[in-house]
Design a protein around this nucleic acid. Sequence first.
RNA 1: GCGAUUGUGGCGAAGUGGUUAACGCACCGGGUUGUGGUCCCGGCAUUCGUGGGUUCGAUCCCCAUCAGUCGCCCCA
Length: 435
Amino acid sequence: MNYQKLKGTVDLLPEETRKWQFIEDKARDLMRAYQFNEIRTPMFEQLELFARGVGETSDIVTKEMYDFRDKGDRHIALRPEGTAGVVRAYVENKLYGPEFHKPTKLFYMGPMFRYERPQSGRQRQFHQIGVEVFGSRNPSVDVETMVLGMDLFKQFGITDLKLVINSLGSTETRQTYREELIAYLEPHLNELSKDSQVRLYKNPLRVLDSKDKKDKEIVKDAPSILDYLDEASKAHFEAVKGMLEELDIPYIIDTNMVRGLDYYNDTIFEVITTNPKFGANATVCAGGRYDGLVEEVGGPSTPAFGFGCGLERLVLLLEHMDFDYPELNPLDAYIVTMGDRADRAANKLAQVLRQNGLSVEREFMNRKAGKQFKTADKLNADYVFTLGDQEIDNGIVQVKRLSTGIQTEVSLTELALRFDETYSSLIRSTEKGEE
RNA sequence: GCGAUUGUGGCGAAGUGGUUAACGCACCGGGUUGUGGUCCCGGCAUUCGUGGGUUCGAUCCCCAUCAGUCGCCCCA
């Protein structure tokens, strides 16, 4: 029997993990700059939490949840997104208490799970980095968070992005608008695509961003949700737009943009890549305001704003632009060995060098010296330490700096006893001399 | 859940209903018996995702299945 990984999962091999580590490090730095602190919540929760948070009608619940019964017959689901778990933790740990700074700004990073067909930028286990801000209705929160979402990409030099915003208004607004939209679309029922005919009653807002050509034509003259906003929502949206302009952040209003999750109100946004190499899944970051969810999950009425970014899509984006990742694990020294005595002596030498902060690899395969040098060269080692019977008899090691080709002898005991002096003089003596 | 397409050594990639499955890269060994990006020589698939079927004979044709890729639904 040959085992293979489950559909929609990947093995990230060292060549890939070095990219991921770099991205994660940069992302954490950025979060610090914005004063967001990390929260880690479980990767599985009661199914009910997600069902409630995400919205019963959503396909995420009906067909994309990775759920199972545990030995205690609890109905469990692997988290399909990050917000519900963070909100649960916020409520359960009473982070809304008076001793916590307001607003509370949290970020998370980790795997999410959805049972769906894999395709470009989409897997069953995928990774998101996301943020949640609790406790403020200030439109500045919306703006700061959206700007952070943009910055997440900009810090890697990604420029082909657009920020798309919309407002969903209040629950009442969406209810009224929903009815108006159905009223508008119903006369066209037979002209709509099959998918959209199903959507019409289940989730009419989804008809608005249909990919079908004919649907788009019909939808063009549909009423805009922005015309149904109440005074408060209107003022909020105007404030958000004004603040973005003051920051010189270009944005596009797309009144047809909707949300897959039910808990959003007022501002919603997406960061979309315009990179031509990107396929169907060009949204790299999406989020918005969800003022009702904390209360829905059992906490005090608390306004909130957040987003989630797909890390696979970020990696893909960087791949498309041939991003040059820095070497995360450079090799300081490679130890060449010749013979059994050298093999043993290399253990000791490697430890001395490592204890003094160097990154060291050594020969294990007992190949010929020439082959070992070739390997050291391929691994881009700064120095090659060569040990053979002659060296061991004399208590020394040959050290060659590959970039200059200059080789010198160093005493093994000096290296062990006075590493700093010995090593810096070694560096000096292998530098390219003045001709 | 639906559709399209692909599946040959570690990787990339030819190939044909018939007997020895090209080639390139990587790797290993040697030429150079202790010193690195060159060159030369040699090695490296009883086997063509898996299971059936058609056939005298299948990597090639058919069916099923698994997996990859891309798209739809949905969504980051």
